[in-house]
Every structure is written in C-alpha cells, then in structure tokens.
Design a protein around this nucleic acid. Structure first.
Lengths: 98, 98
DNA sequence: TTGACATGCAAGTGGCGACTTGCATATAAC
DNA sequence: GTTATATGCAAGTCGCCACTTGCATGTCAA
C-alpha cells in the first residue's frame, strides 16, 4: 500500500478525523485521555480498542507520532502529510475579497 | 451523510483520485474520453460503468460539475471543497528555506 | 427509421475495513 | 508481591463499497 493510500484511508474515517481535531485542540494526549475526551466533547462512544486501532492507522499515515514514557504513550499531531493534498490539485488558497 | 463524509469518501478511492488528476490535466472531458485516457495514461482497466459511478460520487462531493450538451456530458473539476481540508487542520503552507 | 454512439439504471457479488471480544504484557502504586 | 493502571494483540462478525452484469434511454448520422 503506497503513501497516498495510507493517507487518504486515514482521513477517510469520521472518527479518525475527530481524533485529529482533538489532537489539534490539545496535542500529546494518551489513548485513555483521547477516549475520554471523545466521549465527553464529541459524543462518540467508541471503545478503547477501536480508538487504538484508529491511532495505529493515523500513525501509519504519518499524521500522528508517538512518544513512549513509562506506561504512557503520548500522541502528537503532524499535519505534514496533508500538504501533499494541497500540492496535488490546484487549490485556490484565498477567497477573493468581495 | 454530511458534506465532509461525501468529500472524504470521494477522495478516499485511488481511481477517483486519478480521475481528478486527469481532469486537472484536461478539464471538461466526457465519460468515454476519461475511460480511454485512464486506460492509456494510467494503466487502469476499469469499466465504463465503474467510472460512471465514480463520477457520480465525485459530483455528490462537489468536486466535479457536469454540463450536458446533446448526447455528450462534460465533466469539470472544482477543487473548492478541498479547501475545507486545508482550513480544518493547521497546515504549514510553505517549507522554510534551508 | 434504422443503426451506431453516449450515457443511465438497478440488482447481485466479493472483499475490505470498523468494531467487538477476550486475553496478554508492562509499568506503577501500595 | 499484589493490585490497579495503560496499552497491545489477534480472531471473528458485520456492513459498506467498488465492481460487474444486463438492459434501458436518449441522441445523432445515414
């Protein structure tokens, strides 16, 4: 599976996009913290295992990097791969002023 | 199904991304023209019906607009919806010079 | 009008992916 | 050492989606 496939597959799932939103608002969360905040803030009721698998997919796509510390594993957002989308097709960056 | 779901689902398929590539290099193609060029240039061997269904998905996502003229139907690219991706997460637009 | 061309529609099939379930491992608190 | 905490792994289920198949509709040329 090539890089593009990994990337687009990763952002193709609504729960994974919400996880990216969560890491945008607070970077470096643990799995349990993400689970809790997804339930609280976003009303999602996904199990820990489901979220864990989502994080694995995001990591394979290079959108999330992890850092181990004792029994904790912190997840960090990296939007770098998303730039390839912007560069692939001609996107107008700014709306012209009316 | 909300807008985001349509958009990310649309670009989640490799064949549909190749169609967007094709329309980027030559806009306003008919279904048959797209089929031919996908086979020639990209080595894809998808049937006409499959491509037609892909174009429907792209149109639902707002990435492709169509224009009917007699028995022909021309397909036009619109990258506008892709901007929502750029705006959703903080993407560094430019690499800093080394 | 007859035939060729361009597209549309709808049911059926197969595989991939999201999610669950159950257990395992590792670290830290007591 | 014992228990609780945080995460990992793997098999199984189920629904969705890409693709096919077959036929229908509409347009233009002769």
């Amino acid at each position: 599976m090539n890089e593009d496939t990994d990337l687009f597959k990763a952002i193709g799932d609504a729960t994974r996009r919400t996880i990216l939103d969560e890491l945008t608002s607070k970077d470096g969360q643990t799995l349990f913290e993400i689970c809790g905040r997804l339930t609280m803030k976003h009303g999602l009721a996904s199990s820990r295992q489901a979220i864990s698998q989502h994080l694995t997919v995001l990591e394979q796509a290079g959108l999330v990097h992890t850092r181990r510390q004792g029994r904790y594993k912190f997840h960090h957002l990296d939007t770098g791969p998303l730039r390839s989308i912007v560069e692939r097709w001609p996107i107008d960056r700014e709306e012209p002023n009316p």
